[in-house]
């Protein structure tokens, strides 16, 4: 029988620790495939977040470093400055990068740090059990917004990629989703472009990806995908938010 699909070499055999229906796994696969396709697995050092995906250090077959919550981009900066010839990326949840780590998110972009950051946005703090995140949308029920996020109290959600796109050093900023095969394919292209930007040393590249959290949203995997489409997509602009001329010339 002809083999039409095999698992990417970018992932190890360590089983994923994610809940059923969570889309972290898809995003892991996309990154691992891109690194394999670009022949970067031996060249790459990943930096893990603290959160549900904090254990991905073992799941990828490249070198990985885990640091404090929110500090992945500062850690990545240290690695990149020590080894500019290596490919360095961070993988961070929205709680990690858009709350406790926001200052680093702004400043790696401002410095045009030649790293790639992948943000996974599921609108909650997942690992701690579904608390409100800066990305929780208006009216969304979480354990710390039990009556729904009141934007008069908590403010409206942050669309981090839009903010990052305003900074000169961020040369490629894109927002994807993994709710459908079409969007998965498109997101993979974004991830690939982000790593190409880094390889060319053009500046900071950033891909934000909408993701589901069935467990904390209290929905089935399929309902979660529908909830994402209905509630998150109107709030978070998708597509390539910024690509400089140099990036487009790639």
């Amino acid at each position: 029988m002809e083999k039409v699909f095999s698992k990417t070499k970018g992932l190890t055999d360590v089983p994923f620790t994610y809940c059923p229906g969570c889309t972290h796994g898809i995003i892991h696969r996309l990154i691992a495939e891109v690194l394999e396709e670009m022949d970067l697995l031996e060249n790459t050092i990943g930096v893990a977040p603290v959160g549900c995906s904090g254990f991905l250090l073992d799941m990828f077959s490249c070198d990985f470093v885990g640091g404090p919550h929110g500090r992945a981009q500062a850690v990545a900066t240290g690695i990149k400055r020590a080894m500019p010839e290596r490919t360095v990326f961070t993988y961070q949840g929205d709680g990690d990068i858009a709350a406790i780590g926001t200052s680093h998110a702004i400043h790696v972009a401002a410095r045009g740090e030649k790293i790639t950051s992948i943000m996974v946005n599921n609108a909650v703090f997942g690992m701690t059990g579904g608390q409100m995140a800066p990305t929780t949308i208006g009216g969304q029920v979480t354990t710390t917004s039990p009556y729904g996020r009141d934007c008069a109290l908590a403010g409206p959600p942050i669309d981090l990629p839009k903010t990052i796109a305003t900074l000169e050093g961020a040369v490629y900023v894109a927002a994807g989703s993994v709710d459908s095969p079409k969007n998965v394919a498109q997101t993979k292209k974004m991830i690939k472009k982000a790593f190409q930007v880094q390889q060319k040393g053009l500046g900071f590249s950033f891909v934000s990806i909408l993701s589901t959290c069935p467990t904390n949203w209290g929905l089935s995997p399929v309902d979660s995908l529908n909830w994402l489409r209905k509630n998150m997509m109107p709030v978070y602009q998708l597509g390539e938010l910024k690509a400089t001329e140099e990036v487009n010339a790639l």
């Binding site: 050092i45 930096v47 470093v65 640091g67 404090p68 500090r71 500062a74 850690v75 990545a76 900066t77 240290g78 690695i79 990149k80 400055r81 020590a82 080894m83 680093h104």
Partner: peptide, 9 residues
């Protein structure tokens, strides 16, 4: 944390 990253290399 930048020191942390650099030291890791």
């Amino acid at each position: 944390n930048m020191c942390y990253g650099a030291a890791a290399t």
